[in-house]
Design a protein around this nucleic acid. Structure first.
Lengths: 263, 263
DNA sequence: TGCTTCGTTTCATTATTTAAAATGACATTT
DNA sequence: AAATGTCATTTTAAATAATGAAACGAAGCA
């Protein structure tokens, strides 16, 4: 079992500040179902003495993490504050999917010993933004930064399948390749979305096969694809099933690291 | 009704937990320009002893508010953590007007191809609670969650103009800016109320102009402002008239969706 | 009026934070 | 190869700041 956010710290650790932890944990009580709490409710729920809870809540409010709605002298409610909007947005802007995905890609690369790629969309094209090479003698050495049309290769196709319909249509219109039938492409994209992964055989390179799974962000949008590729002969039978399962898990782990939550 | 409550707490207050405040303030150092900090940098910047900063950072990391990237034994960097994404999203979900306004904002954004913002009042300040970016190369990228004084920018000014008289007076008293003449501000606020919209040129950013219209709820209270902003050169002549007309309509649509009815 | 329920404050006690100094691991310089 | 410097981390006794039982005051209820 691979846990992808290994916590280094135990709660009782001396090297932490207990007050900070107590305060931050209070924020978790403010959920979609229970967005409002009174001092008394929080104190009971968190098993803290009322004055302690009071001071923690007041501190959180002072910093904008909570909002206090005082309706009368002895009826105050707390809600999450707008400071969290600001910070949440900052995180979203700062997330560099490459950095987050890299360790997981390396792990997957060691396990499968095949080339692992991270692919995104920009300007109607697929772009390989990172890779981990396999250690095999005969190996695929794709260049990071390579651009590719969205209809060719497992990663690009997967991304195309998850584009908004209008964007997808725009891309499909640009396919001028004589051998490609756009109605068949559409059918395949539909299948890719349904089965949750994309397969390509000999599309990017002769004799190589690729398998891709989607990476989701906290908004449940597909932001990238993780692709495993190598010699077609190594992508058959039980081996293929194993590659698929490992890749699916890795994509899931990276998604979680990006804040994706299944609810 | 636009809620209005001035902050009740001073920093030195006994009724707060200093450790919590110190920790939360550290998060503010992680901006777009400086998204990464080492322990040493944070300790210097926050003027805290290294071990103290260390424990605060470790506690924040333990709760997912920070992410530690340990590259080697003596090279660790901290970034904002995905927990903030989760909490930010929870706050966003709790602001109902966002959900209602979003589709209309997107529609307006497509029509005008300029940045659209949704602005409200809290704690005597304007807060940008949502945005739709334009697709132009040169575009305004304002941050959601940003606070701004109520006398600067079309959205804030419009909200200020529609505050209750006593609240408006309180805000105007806090204006200590040497170049701002409060009697002229009052005159402008009166005009804004009369003409039904607010204009700002170069107030939030040099070279940008903003146009704002009020959003009313079922009680006929102004609950938010919708603001369109972009390069001043694009806000002139017939173009400005078109922007005003489209924005006015959108504000009207959102108001209707909130239950506002003209009798 | 008396009783209860809140949020808030008080204050003596004590547990937790504090920060100087030391440590160990690595990198760079001599 | 030894010495120096730099960093994150751990240790320590000292000091401060958090603690929580109790009390307070304001509001609602009976």
């Amino acid at each position: 079992m691979v846990s992808f956010s290994l916590l280094n710290h135990r709660e009782g650790d001396i090297k932490m500040n207990q007050s900070v932890i107590k305060a931050l944990k209070l924020l978790d009580y403010f959920t979609e179902d229970t967005p409002e709490w009174t001092l008394k409710e929080i104190a009971i729920r968190a098993e803290l003495p009322k004055p302690t809870a009071y001071r923690l809540l007041t501190s959180l409010e002072y910093c904008g993490f909570l909002r206090k709605i005082k309706q009368s002298e002895h009826d105050s409610r707390y809600q999450l504050g707008v400071k969290l909007l600001e910070l949440g947005h900052r995180v979203a802007d700062q997330i560099e999917i490459r950095k987050i995905a890299k360790p997981f890609m390396e792990q997957l690369g060691e396990r499968l010993n095949e080339a692992i790629h991270l692919v995104t969309v920009e300007g109607g094209q697929a772009i390989y933004i990172d890779k981990v090479d396999s250690h095999r003698a005969l190996r695929l050495c794709t260049k990071v930064g390579k651009r590719s049309p969205l209809y060719s290769g497992s990663g690009p196709k997967l991304l195309l399948a998850h584009l908004q319909e209008d964007e997808q249509a725009t891309v499909l219109q640009t396919i001028s390749h004589p051998f490609i039938d756009s109605s068949r492409v559409k059918a395949e994209l539909k299948l890719i979305k349904e089965q949750g992964f994309a397969l390509s055989e000999g599309e990017q390179d002769v004799d190589t096969t690729g398998v891709s799974y989607p990476i989701y962000d906290y908004q449940h949008s597909v932001v990238a694809a993780i692709a495993v590729s190598g010699l077609t002969s190594r992508f058959e039978g039980d081996n293929l099933l194993r590659i698929q399962e490992e890749t699916r898990k890795t994509a899931q782990q990276i998604s979680s690291a990006l804040g994706y939550q299944i609810n």
